[in-house]
Simulated scan of single mutants.
Amino acid sequence: MPSIDILHEHSLPHAKARKAVQEVADKLSERFGIQYDWAGDTLNFSRAGVDGKIALAGTNLRVTADLGFLMSAFKGPIESEIRRVLDERFS
C-alpha cells in the first residue's frame, strides 16, 4: 500500500497541539466519516481505504497513513492538503 509519512515541527505547547489535532479529527469525522480514537498522544484514524495516525512528540508531530488501492490515486492531493492544514494549524 502507498503510504504518507509527514514529520511536522511546531512550537505549540503540548495541550494546544493536542487540541489542534482533536479539532482536525473532528472535522475529518464530520466531512468524511473518519473514525478515530486516542491512544496516549497518538490519534488513530480510519475509514474505508485509509488507516493512519497522528503522533505528538515534543515539538513535532508525525502523520502516517496507509492508502488502499482506490485512495492511492489521490495520494498527491491528500498529502498536499495534510501539509496545508498542518501549516495552518501549527504555524
Results as ranks from 00 to 15, higher is better:
79 E>W: 06
54 I>G: 00
4 I>K: 01
19 K>M: 11
5 D>E: 08
62 R>Q: 11
25 A>L: 15
79 E>L: 10
82 I>R: 01
82 I>L: 09
22 Q>Y: 05
20 A>R: 07
57 A>H: 13
48 A>D: 08
9 E>Q: 10
6 I>D: 01
22 Q>G: 14
79 E>M: 10
27 K>R: 15
28 L>A: 15
45 F>G: 01
11 S>K: 15
20 A>T: 02
18 R>M: 15
65 A>N: 02
16 K>T: 13
90 F>T: 02
25 A>W: 04
73 A>D: 07
10 H>A: 02
72 S>L: 11
49 G>M: 05
56 L>Y: 04
61 L>P: 08
1 M>R: 13
79 E>C: 09
88 E>A: 13
3 S>V: 10
42 T>P: 00
7 L>S: 13
11 S>W: 09
65 A>Y: 00
21 V>Y: 03
75 K>F: 05
8 H>I: 10
74 F>R: 14
41 D>L: 09
69 F>P: 06
66 D>C: 05
54 I>K: 00
85 V>D: 01
10 H>F: 13
79 E>K: 14
63 V>Y: 02
33 G>K: 15
20 A>W: 02
26 D>W: 04
28 L>K: 04
71 M>D: 01
64 T>H: 06
91 S>M: 06
65 A>T: 01
5 D>Q: 05
21 V>S: 03
32 F>V: 11
30 E>W: 05
77 P>C: 02
82 I>C: 02
57 A>W: 04
64 T>S: 06
51 D>M: 09
63 V>A: 00
59 T>S: 13
33 G>V: 05
5 D>H: 08
43 L>F: 07
68 G>N: 10
15 A>F: 07
50 V>T: 12
84 R>K: 15
22 Q>S: 14
57 A>T: 12
11 S>Y: 11
83 R>D: 03
41 D>N: 14
62 R>Y: 02
14 H>P: 11
39 A>G: 03
42 T>F: 03
3 S>L: 06
44 N>D: 10
76 G>T: 15
43 L>C: 12
11 S>M: 06
6 I>S: 00
24 V>P: 00
41 D>C: 04
83 R>F: 02
85 V>K: 06
30 E>C: 11
29 S>V: 07
74 F>Y: 12
54 I>A: 02
66 D>P: 05
64 T>Q: 15
68 G>S: 11
46 S>E: 14
